[in-house]
Design a protein around this nucleic acid. Structure first.
Length: 670
DNA sequence: GATCCTCGAGTTCT
DNA sequence: CTCGAGGATC
């Protein structure tokens, strides 16, 4: 047996050597030894550490195998918030970014550091005196989850910084991703083990990072790219973003090699086009590029608007397109009887998910694009979410495929399909005779923003209607355990929950009730106006078209819809039945006083708020006399931007409107 | 009559 | 989110 002093030195040597190999492999992308040799070193270290438990260290590479599972993740507050970037979707928007930066800095030409925008998960890595002490997810930018135990298992993350005099504290920002080939191997393994495969590298990385059992994470091939610094103590920042990245690389952190320093808008676009061409050949997913003003002092001068920096922007690549086939064109019947053609597609992987359906909107749209069954088409995810058929690939059509026409009889009830001369939409004339429309009407009635019956979903409604148990909303209130017992996936417990939810929905508000009725052209906003104008349902039902048109935003067409609805005896009976069943609200709706600090102010919300839901924010604003609207215009006073804001923020900026972040809104709310 | 501002309705996938 | 269309305004 060797003396312990010897073992201690050998252990330290092995640890350093193994971490050197990790560094070469993950940070420098230059493997230095074979896997077999690496394993040999690793096993030798494990054996030595087992023989000398007193020499154990949390920094040892052997500790990367993962500790025992956690009951839950602790939450972590980011000292320096992890903000999201604004997006540019076109070259013009990228040029506008450069123009704003030049104006802000009063400079003719600005130097930028350009980097790829990785499609992964942002994280924060805290090093105290050079030791990795904490890793956290981005969360909402202000608070994330403590995933230190998981990140310790990631071999590309150094447990110790490679610096003689590391800063007292540094919070490194980076992105966790998965390489394509690692992802393929992982999925092959999942398949062999009979476990669920991941749909894309991003989901695989997210799932791996949020494992409560770090031993599972240890088996997942996660990678890091470091790209920034949050908090820093005991050291000065270098002068530029490029120097900062160089410094992180020196510390042994993996920094992406596809970066460049360029000048002016021309330089930005050149970098963008170059990376776009390389995109397919890169071993990982990139969804755009990031431009940052290179000089950190200039970054500081430009500062922030709302939650996003003014010195950086993400220029997104165009939505990915893919080719697939139209297997069938089916027709859906909506609540108002609208017939919507939907393309059933041969499943195709595009924009990170498998797409099988795409709406074709209406018959004219089908003809404009001349889509026919069996055609080869190009699809993409519009706005990165909803699949869209872009066009037919010419020349791939099998001969003799007929032009598509909507059926002349409703596929659900056989009633005639009618298309009014001026309208784009064809409708089933069956009304509530049509089971499809009845189902949709019930679903609307029970939906969250109407009477909010939890647990009464599409599948359940389908069964209730098909089994002739429920024909209209009032009958929901006559349901008992017996009626529900025969249904699929409906045990005693779920049945009781559902009955409780139905019972609970009896207490509601007039505006929800009016909305729930599903009157044509009366949505949430109009229902609210009607409720506060008339105060009682009886007053609304008694109103003629002239009286109705006194309500804001009600013109001849909406007024006619309402009058026609209440002229139908079955609708009046349904309303009576609901009230008899016990559905009620406090009849006195006091018209909201247009007073309060926000009187006459119009707000628009976009993105996700962290401390409150949008509904809560809306209620708070309205309580102070403000109005919350859905779309941005010149008349909007404030736009409240949460995390991941949509196109509304861009429009607000273009119009030069006042933009608030969540903190500013809170302050205003007092 | 033109234009702008909103609202309503329909839709996908995890 | 997007499109289409109703309502208000000039």
């Amino acid at each position: 047996m060797k003396p312990p002093g010897d073992a201690s030195a050998r252990i330290e040597r092995l640890r350093r050597e193994i971490e050197d190999h990790n560094h070469s492999y993950y940070a420098l992308d230059r493997p230095t030894i074979s896997d077999a040799e690496y394993d040999r070193l690793f096993r030798e270290l494990q054996a030595l550490e087992q023989a000398h438990p007193d020499l154990a260290s949390a920094d040892s590479p052997t500790q990367r195998v993962g500790s025992a599972p956690l009951p839950e993740f602790a939450s972590v507050t980011h000292e320096v918030p992890m903000l999201s970037l604004n997006n540019a979707f076109s070259e013009a928007e990228a040029e506008a970014f450069d123009r704003r930066a030049r104006e802000g800095l009063a400079s003719d030409e600005i130097e930028y550091n350009c980097e790829p925008k990785f499609d992964g998960l942002a994280i924060s890595l805290t090093y105290a005196e050079g030791r990795f002490v904490r890793g956290a997810t981005r969360g909402d930018g202000y608070t994330g989850e403590d995933v230190t135990a998981n990140l310790r298992t990631v071999r590309g993350i150094p447990l110790r910084l490679r610096a003689r005099h590391p800063p007292a504290l540094i919070d490194v920002r980076g992105e966790m991703i998965m390489y394509h080939d690692d992802f393929d191997r992982l999925n092959a393994r999942q398949r062999e083990r009979g476990e669920k495969e991941f749909v894309n590298p991003r989901n695989a990385a997210a799932g791996s990072l949020r494992q409560l059992d770090p031993r599972v994470t240890a088996e997942r091939p996660l990678r890091l790219f470091a790209y920034g610094v949050g908090e820093l103590r005991g050291a000065e920042l270098p002068p530029t973003q490029k120097d900062l990245l160089d410094l992180l690389a020196e510390f042994g952190l993996p920094v992406c090699g596809e970066r460049a320093v360029t000048s002016g808008a021309v330089g930005l676009l050149e970098y963008y086009r170059t990376l776009l061409e390389k995109r397919a050949a890169l071993p990982y997913d990139v969804d755009g590029v990031v431009y940052k003003v290179n000089r950190l002092a200039d970054q500081q001068r430009l500062g922030f608007v709302s939650r996003a920096p003014r010195f950086a922007i993400a220029h997104k690549f165009p939505a990915e397109e893919a080719e697939t086939e139209i297997v069938a064109i089916e027709v859906q019947v909506g609540r108002t009887g609208a017939l919507t053609p939907v393309a059933r597609l041969k499943p195709v992987f595009v924009g990170g998910v498998t797409v099988t359906n795409a709406t074709l909107h209406n018959e004219d749209e089908v003809h404009r694009k001349d889509v026919r069954v069996g055609d080869t088409v190009i699809v993409r995810r519009a706005g990165d979410v909803i699949p869209e058929v872009l066009r037919v690939v010419a020349g791939k059509r099998k001969s003799d495929v007929p032009v598509y026409h909507l059926p002349r009889k409703c596929p659900a009830c056989g009633s005639a399909v009618i298309r009014l001369p001026d309208e784009a939409i064809a409708r089933c004339s069956g009304g509530l005779v049509c089971p499809a429309q009845r189902k949709q009407a019930l679903w609307h009635f029970a939906s969250r923003r109407a009477l909010d019956i939890d647990g009464l979903g599409e599948k359940l409604i389908e069964q209730l209607v098909d089994a002739d148990i429920v024909h209209g909303p009032a009958e929901l209130y006559g349901l008992g355990l017996e009626e529900l017992s025969g249904l699929d996936r409906m045990g005693e417990k779920s049945a009781q929950n559902l009955l409780a939810a139905i019972e609970k929905s009896k207490r509601t508000t007039l505006r929800r009730f009016i909305y729930a009725l599903g009157i044509r052209n009366v949505g949430e906003a109009t229902a609210k106006d009607l409720a506060s104008h008339f105060g009682t349902l009886d007053a609304l039902m008694a109103a003629d078209e002239t009286a109705l048109q006194e309500v804001t935003d009600v013109g001849p067409i909406v007024a006619e819809s309402i009058r026609k609805f209440f002229a139908e005896q079955h609708n009046v009976r349904a309303v009576q039945a609901l009230r008899q069943a016990g559905v009620s609200w406090s009849e006195t709706v006091t018209a909201r006083p247009a007073r309060g600090p926000f009187a006459g102010k119009s707000f628009v919300l976009t993105g996700t708020l962290s401390g409150m839901t949008r509904e809560e924010a809306t209620a708070q604003i309205e309580a102070r006399g403000g109005k919350v609207s859905g779309s941005v215009s010149g008349k909007t006073d404030y736009v409240v931007a949460g995390a991941d804001p949509g196109a509304k923020l861009a429009k607000a900026e273009r119009l030069g409107l006042t933009i608030l972040d969540e903190a500013a809104l809170r302050k205003l709310l007092g």
